[in-house]
Amino acid sequence: MLCSTISLELAEIADGSAELVDDSRVHVERCIRCQAELVQYKKILRGLTSLQGEFIVPDDGLLEEILATVQPPATVHKLHRLNHKHRKVAYISSIAAAGAAGAIVLAARLASREKVAS
């Protein structure tokens, strides 16, 4: 039996999804390099399994971004309404402010004309 044939199975043997049987078992028992390859796969698989407990820390703000993404529709609607209400108030206030400023300017001009006339 060739090492290259066994090599195809070694990773599956290392993870327990396949078993060494008959000729392949005899070969691996005698072949030090196939044994080494099997040990390497076992180490890799153990290392990979241990990675599950390792967290990669996300940059700041991810949690807030996720929570904003999953906002219930009612809250989003409410926010829109709130924004709309705020915009309405700001619009009316700016019109009122512009009106008041116009009235002051007009009154000032009238007062200065009266002064000149007298």
């Binding site: 390792e54 967290f55 996720i66």
Partner: peptide, 8 residues
């Protein structure tokens, strides 16, 4: 409770 794991 799960977002760090999911992000990883």
């Amino acid at each position: 409770d799960t977002y760090a794991d999911t992000y990883t």
